[in-house]
Design a protein around this nucleic acid. Structure first.
Lengths: 322, 322
DNA sequence: AATCATGTTGCAAACGATTACAGCCTCGAA
DNA sequence: TTCGAGGCTGTAATCGTTTGCAACATGATT
C-alpha cells in the first residue's frame, strides 16, 4: 500500500486538498469542525507530509550545511554540537560535509541547502557567494560574510598577563605556522601584553600547532642559556608535546617552568599536571553562528562580526616561579 | 534574475525539456550534436539541477541521517567521519541529528532521509522500522536491522590475556553500568579469559563508564587488603580517572599497578603514562555501516551483523608486576 | 430589501524536474 | 517500392504540496 497523500486525507474528510493544507499550516483559517474532521482523517490514514514536495513548492530546502575541514576533530564536533542545538528546534536539518572528502561546490548549490556555516578558511569564496553564509573561527579573505570569532589578540594577552601576575619575567611564546592569521594575532597580543607589563620581549619559538612542533620547542627551550620561566604556546596540542618532552628530560612542570596553552581541548584537563589554558567557547561559537545564520535567513540579519569572550582556565601547569 | 530552469536551457538549445533531461542523465541516448548544443546552452545560462524537484519525482531524498547520542563526543564524531567518507562519493548527503536535541521521530519520516545509521541504542525501534537502518556500536533490542559491532567479549579477553601474559595473577575489572549490553559482554569476556588462564576470578568493581566512576574505583582499590596488580577498566574515561586518583595518592602506574582501558580515545595516548588499551576501529565502523546501508538501498543488502576486529594498543601503563 | 464585510472553502495553476509513449526520420532489406 | 528496425526527439502526465483568486454563506448595516 502506498503512502497516503494529501488527496487521500482530503477525500476521506470530504474537503479539498487546499483545506487540508491550510488545516496543517494555518489552522486558524479553517473552521473548528472541519479541522476536527481533517484531524480524524489524518489519524485514520496515518498521513504525513512529504517534505520534498513542500520544499519544492516553497523554494527552500530546510537544510543548513556545515563545512568542516575534519569531522573527526573534536574541536569541530563541539562547534557542530552547538549548531545542532540551535538548528534543530528551528526546524532545520543539519547537513555535514567534510571538505577533505566532499567537493564544497556541491553544497554551494542552492538546491542543497538554504545556508552555510563554514569552519574551513580554505574554502574559495566564490563557492559561498550564492547562499547566506556565516564563517566560524577563521575569517575568509575576500568574502563579506559575518564571522563568529574570538579575540585572539586579547586572549593571548590574557595568557601572558596571567604569567606576569604570577611573577614570571622571562617569557617564551611558541607560535603557530607563520602567515596564519591566528598565529599573528596571538603573537601580537603576547608582545603587547608583555610590553604593557614592562617585561622584556618574550622569546619566540616557531611552531605549527602540532604536537610534534611542541616537542621540538621543548628541545629549543632545553638548549637555552637563559630559559624562560613561563611559556605560552599557541595551541594545546603543542603544549602537550612540550610538557611531555620536558618531563622526559626530568624537568618538572610547573616547578621548573610554567606552561599555558590555548584552546582547552578536552584531554588537557586530564594531563599531569592539568594544563592551564585559554578556553575557546566552542559550543557557544556554534550556537551563535547558527543563530546569526537564522537571522540572515529570516531577513533581519545584522552586519559585522561577533566576537566571543574566551576564558582563562586555571589548572596545575602554572605557578609562581622558583 | 531567476535561477535558470530546465525549460530555459531547452528553449535556448531549441529542444524539449525531455531531451535536456536525457542529455544530463543518460547522455548516450542523445545524439552528439544535440548534446553539444545543450551543453552550450547550459554553460550560457549557468543552469544547475534543482534537487528538490528531482527528488520529488524520484521519490527519494538523497540523504542519510545519522542519529548520535552526543555530537560533541569524539567517539561518535570519528564514526561520523568514516560514514562521511563513504556516503559522499556515493552521492548521498549526511544529515546529522543529535538525539538529545532532536526528536528522532522526525527522522524516521521517510520524506527526510532514505536510510538511517543509528548510534544510540535507546532509540525506540518503532521509529526506525520505516526506513532501511543500520545500527552501529550498540545493538537495539527488538529491531531486526543489521548491526556493525565489535566482539566485546573477545576484546575483553584480549585485555585480560595481556595482563596474564605479563605475569599478573590478581586482577581487577571495573565495569560499565549494570544492565548495559556492553558491560555484560566485557565482564563475561574478562571472567572467561581469567578462567582460561587458571587465574582466580577478577575482583569486580561497578562503574558507569564515566571519569568520576573511575576515580571512585581507585578509592575502592586503595582500600583493598589484597590489591589487584592488574586492572582492566571497561572504558578509557574510567581509566583516566582511575590513574589520576591513584597518582594523587602517590601510587605509580605501572610500577605499583598495571592499567588497561577500552576504546582508545584520542587523549589517552598523551597521558603520563600512555594508556595501554583496546582500540575500537571507529573510522572503519563508520565506513562499514555506511557501506552496508548503501547495500540495502541498492537492493543487494546482506543479512546479519558485521563484527570488526579490535586491536590491543600497547603503551606504558602496563608492565610486569613487581 | 439591498449592500457589505467576514469567514470558509474549492479550483486550478504553479514549483522543476523525469519518463512512458508515440511519432518521425533514415537506411537497409525484401 | 514497401516495410521494418533503430535512433532520436517531443508531448504530456506525473511526483505531492501550496496558495492566489473567486465563490459562497452568513449575519450585520443602511
Amino acid at each position: 500500500m502506498n503512502r497516503p497523500r494529501i488527496t487521500d486525507v482530503a477525500r476521506i474528510a470530504g474537503v479539498s486538498t487546499a483545506t487540508v493544507s491550510r488545516a496543517l499550516s494555518r489552522p486558524e483559517r479553517v473552521s473548528a469542525e472541519t479541522r476536527a474532521t481533517i484531524e480524524r482523517a489524518i489519524a485514520e490514514t496515518g498521513y504525513r507530509l512529504n517534505h520534498a514536495a513542500r520544499n519544492l513548492r516553497h523554494q527552500r530546502t530546510g537544510s543548513i550545511v556545515a563545512l568542516v575541514p575534519n569531522l573527526a576533530n573534536p574541536y569541530f564536533s563541539q562547534i557542530l554540537s552547538g549548531i545542532a542545538t540551535v538548528l534543530s528546534p528551528a526546524g532545520y536539518n543539519l547537513l555535514v560535509a567534510d571538505t577533505r572528502t566532499t567537493n564544497p561546490i556541491r553544497y554551494g548549490d542552492p538546491s542543497h541547502a538554504d545556508g552555510l556555516i563554514v569552519m574551513d578558511g580554505s574554502v574559495p569564496p566564490s563557492v559561498l557567494a550564492e547562499r547566506p553564509t556565516v564563517v566560524v573561527s577563521e575569517s575568509i579573505r575576500g568574502l563579506s560574510a559575518p564571522c563568529v570569532l574570538i579575540d585572539n589578540e586579547a586572549a593571548a594577552a590574557t595568557a601572558v598577563t596571567h604569567l606576569a601576575d604570577l611573577g614570571h619575567r622571562r617569557l617564551g611564546h611558541v607560535t603557530g605556522p607563520r602567515g596564519n592569521v591566528l598565529t599573528e594575532q596571538r603573537l601580537s597580543g603576547t608582545q603587547r601584553a608583555a610590553a604593557a607589563r614592562g617585561l622584556p620581549a618574550p622569546t619566540v619559538i616557531e611552531g605549527d600547532f602540532s604536537l610534534a612542533s611542541g616537542r621540538r620547542a621543548a628541545q629549543r627551550w632545553l638548549e637555552m642559556a637563559d630559559r624562560p620561566t613561563g611559556v605560552f604556546l599557541a595551541s594545546d596540542e603543542m603544549a602537550c608535546g612540550f610538557i611531555g618532552e620536558l618531563q622526559r628530560h626530568g624537568i618538572s612542570v610547573p616547578r621548573d617552568v610554567s606552561v599555558i596553552g590555548f584552546d582547552d581541548i578536552e584531554m588537557v584537563e586530564h594531563l599531569t599536571p592539568g594544563l592551564t589554558t585559554i578556553r575557546q567557547p566552542r559550543g557557544a561559537m556554534g550556537c551563535v553562528s547558527a543563530e546569526r545564520l537564522l537571522g540572515i535567513l529570516g531577513g533581519d540579519g545584522e552586519e559585522g562580526d561577533t566576537i566571543l569572550p574566551v576564558e582563562l582556565i586555571l589548572r596545575a601547569s602554572t605557578a609562581i616561579p622558583r
